[in-house]
């Protein structure tokens, strides 16, 4: 299991490939489930130019690790990779990567979904967006579905 905060941009797809290549037990996991969250250029009807992601040093890392440990206890996953950006983020950059490996797809997909949803609801991060007339804090995360936003 690897859980890391990243202050600099990362390529989520390449990170999954590198982690899997270094994993050492090919054939064990029949399923890999990946979620990548990327910075949009719009939010709440406004164009967004950039973003700063604040966190609570110590608590954020601890919380992310606990989420992954909980998922590993709940579903039969072999491994978890969780990376999350901090600091100044540009449009199009990856913000979060959740990847899980399991024997079967159900465990991998459910564990990935749980990790990203729990992270969005409880992990101490705060987004501040740069919009046309200045900066604004994001007050809440969306539900995850366009129709309900």
């Amino acid at each position: 299991m690897r859980v890391e905060l990243r202050p600099a941009p990362f390529d989520a797809v390449a990170e999954v490939g590198d982690y899997r290549a270094a994993g050492g037990s090919p054939g064990k996991s029949g399923a890999t489930s990946i979620f990548i969250g990327t910075m949009r250029d719009f939010n709440e009807g406004e164009e967004v130019g950039a973003m700063t992601l604040e966190h609570y040093p110590g608590m954020t890392e601890k919380h992310l690790k606990e989420i992954c440990e909980h998922a590993a206890g709940q579903w039969a996953v072999h491994d978890i990779l969780l990376l999350h950006r901090t600091g100044d983020i540009e449009v199009g950059e990856d913000i979060v990567l959740v990847a899980t490996w399991a024997a079967h797809r159900g465990d991998a997909i459910d564990a990935t979904r749980f990790i990203i949803e729990d992270l969005k609801h409880r992990a101490p991060f705060w987004k501040k967006e740069t919009v046309s007339d200045g900066e604004r804090w994001v007050d809440r995360n969306t539900s995850g579905y366009s129709a309900a936003d």
Partner: peptide
């Protein structure tokens, strides 16, 4: 001490208390 709390708990010596808005990570 870096754990979410509800209500108004009593504190102990050396505790760390943090106040923050709803989280918006991911």
């Amino acid at each position: 001490n870096m754990e979410h709390v509800k209500g108004d708990p009593e504190l102990k010596e050396g505790d760390e208390v943090a106040f923050f808005p709803p989280v918006t990570g991911g």
